[in-house]
Structure formats: C-alpha cells, structure tokens
C-alpha cells in the first residue's frame, strides 16, 4: 500500500497537517473513540481489511498502524 497516502489519510482523521511514522497516536488529543471508528472505516473502505478493537488498542505509533493494515492485506 502507498504509505505516504496512508499517513495523509490518518492526518485527515486527526485533523492535523502531517503524521510521521514515529508519532505516538495517544499523544494526540484527537485520538479518541471517534478517531478509532474513523480508522476502522478507513481500513474497511480503502484497504478492505477489518481491524478488531483489541488489535487497535495495541497500536502505539502511526507506523504500527500501517504495519497492522499491511499485514492483514496479505
């Protein structure tokens, strides 16, 4: 998957300019249940994968999230 595009989409969900792979999601005030639902929706609509609640809870950085989605696409 196109990582640059993924980070752009994640930035849009968090309503910020840019997300870097090493950024910790919990550091953002906007990383709440609404953002998590938006990520589940993004995973489903753009990448055709389903992320479970327990999986998303284990994610720390933006890169972890990208890795999780990528692994599920295989």
């Amino acid at each position: 998957m196109d990582k640059t595009e993924f980070y752009q989409r994640l930035a849009a969900i968090l309503d910020i300019e840019e997300v870097k792979p090493e950024n910790v999601l919990k550091d953002y005030d906007q990383w709440d249940s609404l953002a998590i639902l938006s990520v589940l929706a993004l995973a489903d609509s753009q990448y055709g994968v389903t992320i479970r609640a327990d999986e998303i809870r284990q994610v720390v950085t933006a890169a972890d999230l990208a890795t999780l989605i990528e692994a599920k696409r295989k």
Binding site: A41, T50, I51, A53
Partner: peptide
C-alpha cells in the same frame, strides 16, 4: 472510560465490534 460512567443495569456497547459487524 474517562468521563463516561455506566451501571450494570444500563446498555453496554462494544462500539468497535458493533461497527465491524455492521460493515462486514
């Protein structure tokens, strides 16, 4: 969760599970 209270006699919803169910 922060700022959200409920009792066992109220509706508990696993939002992510219900969301995934609906889309899948």
């Amino acid at each position: 969760e922060e700022g959200v209270v409920q009792s066992l006699e109220q509706i508990h919803m696993d939002g992510a599970a219900v969301f995934n169910f609906t889309l899948e």
